[in-house]
Amino acid sequence: MKNELIKPQGLIKNANRRQFLKTGSLSVAAAGLIMVGCKDVEEINPMPPMGDGVMLGSGDIGILNYAYALEQLEAAFYGAVIQGGYFANASAEEKTIMGDLEKHERAHKEFFKAALGDAAIADLEVDFSAINFGDRMSVLNAAKTFEDLGVAAYNGAGQYIENVDYLLIAGKIVSVEARHAAAIRDLLNPGSADFAGDDLIDENGLERTLNFSQVLTAASAYVTTPIDFSQLPS
């Protein structure tokens, strides 16, 4: 069962999507023009795995591990939330929300672990010492950070996914992360426009995207395990 999702074919690049580059880049270079954005994803980074960290890997497997890393972080966070003093004394509405988010993120995490099978990275070590789990504002602000980060991460990674089935799975999850993010933001500032605030959404109505490096740098404030993402597509 767990091998159904990850098929070897998923690792094979979609030739049509990138094939023009093989000759196209020569042509463009000859014309003296700068080619922006039309990059090949086949670059091989020779950086070796880190001794005490995890290596996400390359291609779609690498991106699924990237998602798995973020879901591990979120699941660990909400696992700590529901054990903490804020949750014990929270309103009925907030208890329901936090309880739901704990289950959703745990389900996401376990799903990715099963789907990746032998290719899954190890469990990450987290450090939530900067979060006061007895304090409502501390917990909600951390939740806001994690949920907004998750949405931006999935939105930014989508373009690198080669397998349409994986893209759909990521799409099914990212909208739920966005639903979470909006709810948390509304708890922090009820009745305002912050649920979809201008800090995240631009004048075209498009939500922020973040690249692998930006996301993992932000996450590194809470994840102590080194994460090598050097083989992810770019």
Partner: peptide, 28 residues
């Protein structure tokens, strides 16, 4: 529609970036 625009990275990213905004609206 994500799978139908995935051959164009920029259109896909724009569509995803609208998609999550709609999800925020829905939640609210």
């Amino acid at each position: 529609q994500a799978g139908n625009v995935m051959e164009n990275d920029v259109v896909l990213t724009a569509a995803l970036s609208i998609h999550s905004v709609e999800a925020r609206h829905a939640s609210m």
